[in-house]
Structures are given as structure tokens and as C-alpha cells.
């Protein structure tokens, strides 16, 4: 599938799996899981540094070298457009002018459901400032279209709530979003296991972003490998075009003639 490249903000990627770097036991496990997943785009969060830390304290970025991965700084934990914008300006400074970002503005700490009104407002400012904005949103097709129209480079609707592992709750909304979008549509949040990722890709999503499904598996390294295959498997099935579903008219796969009597 070398020819089936995935284009985001003018750059081609081979892997359609995007992964987060949170919730792992340690940086070594993060590194191994990401490597097994085959992901090329990895999300990172931006947080206050501890003052008075050990100078030799390990840093996440040393384990996911920029030569090998494209960083996708996020705005996780931001509940207002202003906090999200500040966070990504800091991220751009931190990552030497890097423009590709994941915008998410949350609306509620219990569900982490996105606040789409704040998200739209933040996206407008960030795009004006030259950021390439991959945007986390609800599975509302109208908001998805608006985010595309204001210039977001990828639309990332949830499949279900962040960290819930509930899988794809509304495949039909995702289909509407995919049908209407001219930029990549990436399911972000809610995938729980490999079959969820396959379904997302079979629906025609361009990619899937996940973190907890891998990091919270009993064996994250093995789940990372499973997710790599799931994404490829679902993509190939989508491209192959599935057979039509038939309710009851039987059509055997084996010849109906030549049976022994």
C-alpha cells in the first residue's frame, strides 16, 4: 500500500495511525509502544515544568526523536479558547517554530466533551497566526463542516468520549462528516480495541488517533502492534469496497451443480 499515502498539511505519511504519549508506565514503554504502532505523528501535551527538578531528569522528547516522528502538540485540559491559543503559541516556541497542532477545547471535566463554540473561535485565531490546525470536535456534521471552511487541515471527530473505550457510537454521523469533507477526517477518541479501529477505517476515515486504547491495555506493546494491523486492515477493506449485504437470498460460494448423487 505504498501508493496510498496520507496527506496532512502538505506532508505525506505512510501510517494512518496517530498515537498519544500519555498514561504509559515510563518513557521506555512509551517509546516501544509507539515504535510498534508504526505511527509517524505523535501527540504531546504542554505543561508547566516542575521548579527545582533534577537537571538530569529524563525528558519525553528524548525518547521520541524529532528526526523520526512528527510532534502534534495538543491543548488537552484547556476549557477556553484563550488557554488553548496560549498553549499552542508556547508549543510553537518550544518546538522551534513547529506549526502542526491539535486543537481541543473541552467543555466539561466529567465527560471531556468538546466545547465546539470555543473550538471554532480558537481555530479562527490560530489559523490566522499560521498554525496548521487538526481539530478535535464532536461528531456534529455541521460543526465539522464549519471547522473545515475556516481552514482546519484535518477534522477529528470523537467516536465516543475521551478515554472511554466505548468504540464508535454513531457511525452514521461519521459517514456524513466523511462524505462532506475535503480534508482528512480522523477519528480521535473512543477507540477501545482493534475492531473499533477497523470499523473507523472501513467507514472511510483517513486515520485514527488513539492513546488510552494502547496505553491502558494489559500489554500496551502488543496492542500497539494490533492497532497497526487494524488500521491497515480497515483501510485495505475500505479501498477494496465491501460486498453488498443481502438479507436472505442465498448465493452459495460453491458450485450448485456437480453434486454427487
Amino acid at each position: 500500500m505504498e501508493s496510498d499515502k496520507f496527506l496532512i498539511a502538505g506532508k505525506h505519511y505512510l501510517s494512518r495511525l496517530l498515537v498519544g504519549t500519555g498514561k504509559y508506565k515510563d518513557f521506555k514503554e512509551t517509546q516501544t509502544a509507539i515504535s510498534e504502532s508504526g505511527a509517524e505523528i505523535v501527540t504531546v501535551a504542554i505543561r508547566r515544568t516542575n521548579i527545582g527538578q533534577d537537571i538530569k531528569e529524563e525528558s519525553l522528547l528524548d525518547f521520541i526523536p524529532k528526526e523520526k516522528y512528527t510532534y502534534l502538540p495538543n491543548t488537552a485540559g484547556c476549557y477556553t479558547k484563550d488557554d488553548a491559543i496560549r498553549t499552542l503559541r508556547l508549543a510553537r516556541e518550544l518546538l522551534d517554530g513547529h506549526n502542526l497542532v491539535k486543537l481541543e477545547v473541552l467543555g466539561d471535566p466529567n465527560t471531556l466533551y468538546p466545547n465546539v463554540v470555543e473550538t471554532v473561535e480558537a481555530a479562527k485565531v490560530l489559523i490566522k497566526e499560521g498554525f496548521d490546525v487538526m481539530v478535535y470536535t464532536s461528531d456534529d456534521p455541521i460543526i465539522a463542516k464549519q471547522l473545515e471552511d475556516i481552514g482546519c487541515c484535518a477534522i477529528m471527530p470523537l467516536a465516543s468520549l475521551i478515554g472511554s473505550g466505548m468504540g464508535i457510537l454513531n457511525p452514521h454521523n461519521l459517514e456524513i462528516i466523511i462524505d462532506n469533507a475535503k480534508v482528512p477526517v480522523i477519528v480521535d477518541a473512543g477507540v477501545g480495541t482493534a475492531s473499533d479501529a477497523v470499523i473507523a477505517m472501513e467507514l472511510g476515515c483517513d486515520g485514527v488517533l488513539m492513546n488510552t486504547a494502547i496505553a491502558a491495555a494489559d500489554n500496551p506493546i502488543l496492542m500497539a502492534a494490533a492497532m497497526k494491523k487494524a488500521i491497515e486492515c480497515g483501510r485495505e477493506a475500505f479501498l477494496a469496497g465491501r460486498m453488498k449485504k443481502k438479507f436472505y437470498q442465498a448465493d452459495p460460494s460453491s458450485p450448485t451443480s456437480g453434486l454427487i448423487k
Binding site: G20, K23, Y71, A91
Partner: peptide, 10 residues
């Protein structure tokens, strides 16, 4: 002053 670093996140 706000001083930030990159940490694990999704």
C-alpha cells in the same frame, strides 16, 4: 512567568 515543557499526552 510560565515555563513549559512537553509531556506525555493524547
Amino acid at each position: 512567568l510560565e515555563i513549559v515543557i512537553a509531556v506525555g499526552g493524547g
